[in-house]
């Protein structure tokens, strides 16, 4: 059994709540006394993944698990899915709408940024069914 587990509902209809799951988990990590450098990496990776779940996936669920030696973050949505994951991983590539870009998102840096900040990063996606990202950060 995980030492700590928490689940989140990611609601895409409420712009005020964008980033709320990451913010709340960040506070948890600070209270646990996790090293600042790890908090920084986790915050960035989790925030980017949360935003992706909202703007591309149309919302979904998130979960965080803390074990003795690592953190695991999972976001899952039932959105359009990613047709070409390799292409999506390229810096600067984005399918975000103009509207989303005007809100300051969708610069095509999200996925590369998650990869940069995580110890292990996995995307599973099927077009038309949805996307699941798993982020592991070693402690």
């Amino acid at each position: 059994m995980a030492l700590f587990k928490k689940e989140f509902i990611i609601d895409s209809n409420d712009p005020m709540s964008y980033g709320q799951a990451s913010s709340s988990f960040k506070k948890t990590l600070k209270q646990l006394g996790v090293a600042p450098a790890i908090i920084k990496r986790t915050s960035i990776a989790m925030y980017e993944a949360e935003i992706n779940t909202i703007i591309h996936g149309g919302g979904g669920t998130g979960s965080v698990v803390i074990e003795n030696d690592h953190i695991e973050i999972i976001f899952e949505d039932h959105g359009p899915g990613i047709a070409d994951i390799d292409l999506a991983m390229q810096e600067g590539y984005s399918t975000a709408s103009t509207e989303i870009r005007e809100m300051g998102f969708g610069a095509g840096l999200g996925l590369p940024n998650i990869q940069k900040n995580s110890s292990n990063f996995k995307i599973e996606s099927k077009p038309g069914e949805g996307t699941k990202v798993t982020i592991r950060i070693d402690l």
Binding site: G19, S22, S23, K26, S43, N113
Partner: peptide
């Protein structure tokens, strides 16, 4: 500062 932490 929250947003700064998120890399935003």
């Amino acid at each position: 500062l929250e947003e700064l932490e998120n890399g935003k």
